[in-house]
């Protein structure tokens, strides 16, 4: 798993590449926490280069989303492939997260 972080006019865009599994999820979780824990922060997570996500990845994503809600931060996801979208669907997560159709839409929604 690799992460690439960009700052775009007040929004942090985090691109995740490779596998999000029990080995890599803790690192992803720390990164999410370090961004959303700042009140009123704006984060877009781009999964466009993600191969798959296991429950370990969903666990840290859920923790970050709850954290964001508590401190008034905004978390928007984008770039879900058909496979990754299926995993969100199976876990009942499609309605739980804000998921945008494109990276541009996600950035607009996060602002």
């Amino acid at each position: 798993m690799e992460m690439h972080e960009e700052q775009l006019s007040g929004v942090t865009a985090l691109t995740v590449k490779g596998r999000l599994d029990s080995t890599t999820a803790p690192l992803f979780g720390q990164k999410l926490e370090s961004i959303v824990a700042t009140p009123q922060s704006r984060l877009v997570v781009d999964f466009g280069h993600l191969e798959y996500m296991s429950s370990a990845g969903f666990r840290v994503l859920l923790v970050a989303a709850k954290r964001a809600e508590e401190v008034g931060s905004r978390l928007v996801l984008c770039g879900l492939s058909a496979k990754v979208r299926q995993l969100f669907d199976l876990g009942g997560f499609l309605d739980l997260f804000t998921i945008a159709r494109s990276r541009d839409d996600a950035i607009a929604a996060a602002k």
Partner: peptide, 21 residues
């Protein structure tokens, strides 16, 4: 997999994925 964000838990999700996939 029903509850809202603040009440969601991930317990049991892994095995659920295994069964479904």
């Amino acid at each position: 997999i029903g509850p809202a964000l603040k009440d969601r838990r991930v317990g049991g999700l892994g095995v659920h994925f295994v069964r479904k996939l």
